[in-house]
Design a protein around this nucleic acid. Structure first.
Lengths: 300, 300
DNA sequence: TAAAAATACTCCATAGGTATTTTAT
DNA sequence: ATAAAATACCTATGGAGTATTTTTA
């Protein structure tokens, strides 16, 4: 069932002539005869009745022609989609986003991106930084936006945004520690924490490590898997937590929460686009990387 | 876009491995590599990223795989339909029927045929004998059932039924010719005639010719294109006509029409299955020919 | 070191051609 | 006599193999 033989067959069907089919395909008449004969042998069925100098398709020929058109359609469609992939910014782009980017940062960037590149269909997969990075490492996802760098030598991390973490709690809770020294407060506070694998948690851990504090010594009352839950737990007075300023901006503005400054605790971290530079990125993916870099002011 | 290369590509996609694809297709690993490379060259696109010893499809690879499955489906379906055509009585059978067979004879035979061969789909095309025979000669139709033989050397006519034509008129009309000699009556009668090309007309013409009567000398009041119209015209008293006894059986039984005997006018003719014996008949068509011959008692 | 893909090469099947014959109009 | 398909025969591309090298986990 060679596709070129089927093409020869189809042209014979359409022209009811071997020699005309040859002309249409820029092949000699004997070549067409050979192709059709080869198909007939392979199938064990006559495809045409050669009645004198007229060529009439058999029932088998009619059935094959019907399906031949479908085969050509599928092949043509494949070809045209591959061509547009080559020279247009198009196609479905699956992109992984860790908690903070997916919920607080990417949506507004994507809104602009989709306007500028209307042929691209975005599919945002949400997980924590570790999950997204693992998916990118395993080539399940081509692109991720995460809040941490993991030790994966094959991956490229391009910084796109600086983020500020803050230690927040309710004013009531803060008042209880008004006369306590900072380090004691950190060890006494009931903590709301993000799960392991969270970029926010990793940033917190490394910041505390620099103050010689082991997170495992802190009093964790609950572990949550997203920033919204953390914010609500803190507002409910369950304890204090370290989270992106952007996730608690309203609560800080209204005074329902306050950010407590801890001297020498450097709570800044970056968000990155992460990808495997050894993979062939299609235009839409390249575009997305550049878009994230330039629109966040990190490049050009 | 050779289908075998696409098959190699698809197996690599499914196994994420060139060597496993080779095993699955009973081909060597270098052959698989060559096929995929050939496709990549032809398309000018990478289909896989070879990252170390892992193989990851590119976006182009994903698109091609999607369409490859459709191509295989179409090819498989073609193959399976051709196989069932080979060894089962199945498929659509277009069959031409001239006026009398199509309206009065074939329906009940087809009812039985469809019960015995439920996988066959019949499509009955109606025309007059000449139209049907022409369609069979031009290979537009594979089979026809007609009431006349035309001088077409390439066609085979197999008789399937004897038919009796009758000269019919209303009793009133007949009474007007009670004392007229037959020949005068024939020349005086107002005639309802079938169109040229009708087998019924041809049978009538040749019967009259044997009595040295030229139809053109008869007084034709109307030409109709089917037996029902003829019957109604005669019953309305417009004139007399020659038609199959089967088409006016009820009217003869009830006495609304009467058959007038004309000495020496031999009004018998046959119905035939007509086909081009040089065409490859598929099983359902062969079956239909045999069915018509045996069920009408003309063979075995 | 081992496993997988790429490369190098050899071989032969076959897709392609031209020239000719057969067949039917 | 002509037009079309089949046949015969030749050539060269490329599909298939094995052996080997390169690469990387």
């Amino acid at each position: 069932m060679d596709i070129r033989k089927i093409q020869a067959f189809a042209k014979v069907y359409e022209h009811a002539s071997f020699s005309k089919a040859g002309k249409a395909l820029y092949l000699s008449q004997p070549t067409i005869s050979a192709h059709v004969a080869s198909l007939e042998n392979e199938l064990g069925l006559a495809l045409f009745d050669r009645i004198g100098r007229t060529v009439v398709p058999t029932k088998a020929g009619e059935i094959l022609y019907f399906h031949a058109l479908r085969i050509f359609d599928a092949a043509d469609l494949a070809l045209s989609e591959l061509r547009t992939l080559q020279d247009r910014i198009t196609g479905q782009l699956d992109i992984g986003g860790s908690t903070i980017p997916a919920n607080y940062i990417l949506p507004e960037f994507f809104a602009v991106f989709c306007q500028e590149f209307p042929e691209v269909v975005l599919d945002l997969r949400v997980g924590d930084s570790e999950e997204i990075i693992t998916a990118v490492r395993d080539n399940v996802l081509m692109l991720g936006v995460v809040g941490a760098v993991l030790d994966t030598p094959e991956l490229t991390y391009e910084p796109i945004l600086q983020d500020r973490l803050v230690l927040v709690m309710t004013p009531e809770l803060q008042r209880r520690f008004a006369n306590t020294d900072t380090k004691t407060m950190l060890f006494t506070l009931p903590w709301i924490m993000r799960e392991e694998g969270s970029g926010t948690r990793m940033a917190m851990v490394s910041a505390l490590t620099r103050l010689d504090i082991d997170v495992r010594e802190l009093k964790s009352v609950i572990t949550v898997r997203n920033a919204g839950a953390m914010s609500r737990c803190i507002q409910a007075g369950m304890g204090a937590g370290i989270t992106s300023a952007s996730t608690v901006q309203r609560a800080l503005n209204t005074g329902r929460l306050i950010a407590v400054n801890v001297p020498d605790l450097s709570l800044e971290r970056y968000f990155y686009v992460v990808y495997n530079k050894r993979r062939t990125l299609f235009p839409a993916a390249v575009c997305m990387i550049e878009f994230l870099q330039t629109r966040t002011g990190f490049k050009i």
